Simulated assay, not measured.
Amino acid sequence: MANKFIEPLLIFIRGLFMGSADIIPGVSGGTIALITGIYERLVHAIGKIKFSFIKSLLKGNFSEFKATLFEEIDFQLFIPLLLGIAVAMLTFSKVIGFFLDVYPSFTFAFFLGLILASSYVLYAQIVKFSPKMLIISIIGFVLSYIFVGLNPIAANHSIPILFFSGMIAICAMILPGISGAFILLLLGQYHYMLNVLNSLSWTEIVTFCLGALIGILGFSKLLDYLLQQHEEITMALLIGVMLGTLRIPFVEVISNLNAFGLEWILCIILVIIGFALIVLLEMKFKYIE
Rank of each mutant, 00 (worst) to 15 (best):
L213W: 05
L10R: 09
E204N: 07
M235W: 08
F164I: 15
S255T: 07
L162I: 15
I23K: 00
G30P: 14
I216L: 10
T68L: 08
I35V: 12
T31C: 07
L270D: 12
L243K: 03
G60A: 08
F65S: 08
V148Q: 01
G188H: 06
L81A: 11
E64L: 11
M89F: 12
F106Q: 10
L194H: 00
Y190V: 05
H44D: 15
C209G: 03
F78M: 03
N258Y: 00
L277W: 08
S63T: 14
V102H: 14
E7M: 15
G84A: 00
M167W: 04
L277N: 02
V121I: 09
L262K: 11
A154H: 12
I23R: 00
A21I: 05
M283K: 05
F62T: 09
G140V: 03
L246R: 13
K55F: 10
T245E: 04
G177M: 03
K48P: 00
G84H: 05
S179W: 07
E289G: 15
M1S: 13
L257I: 08
H230M: 07
V206D: 13
L122M: 06
I73S: 14
F5H: 07
F78P: 02
I205S: 12
I216N: 05
L197M: 14
K94E: 14
C267V: 08
L197R: 04
G215M: 08
I73V: 15
P152C: 04
P131D: 02
I138W: 04
T107S: 13
